[in-house]
Amino acid sequence: MSTTRYSEDHEWISVDGDVGTVGITDYAQKALGDVVFVELPDVGAVFIKGDEAAVVESVKAASEIYAPVNGEVTEVNVTLNDDPSLVNQSADDAGWFFKIRMDDAGQLDELMTEDQYEEFVKDLD
């Protein structure tokens, strides 16, 4: 049973045990437009919450993706190298970016639930 939490930077983290899978929300992919390249972190990279962890290049611009929690990258989604448009087609599933082994699961409480994120996005429009 996994738990998904959301950041104000429009990342999601889906947690299973002490490993979280990180991606961007459907709202974010729509705002970015057609994704043409994703710069993924190295496996083994260690991030503090808020560190720049990846970069998404759309036809419009480059946008930073921030680590939503502290931890170490255990895996990256290499299929994005061949097909970055997966971020547009399946932002909340097949278009995930990286997996991170969390230092402190308590940091999840600082993020939003799905309901809270939906409210947050509603206020942005």
């Binding site: 043409v36 390249f37 290049e57 480059a62 970055p84």
Partner: peptide
């Protein structure tokens, strides 16, 4: 640029 990464 070689590869797929844009340079702005």
């Amino acid at each position: 640029p070689n590869g797929r990464q844009p340079a702005r």
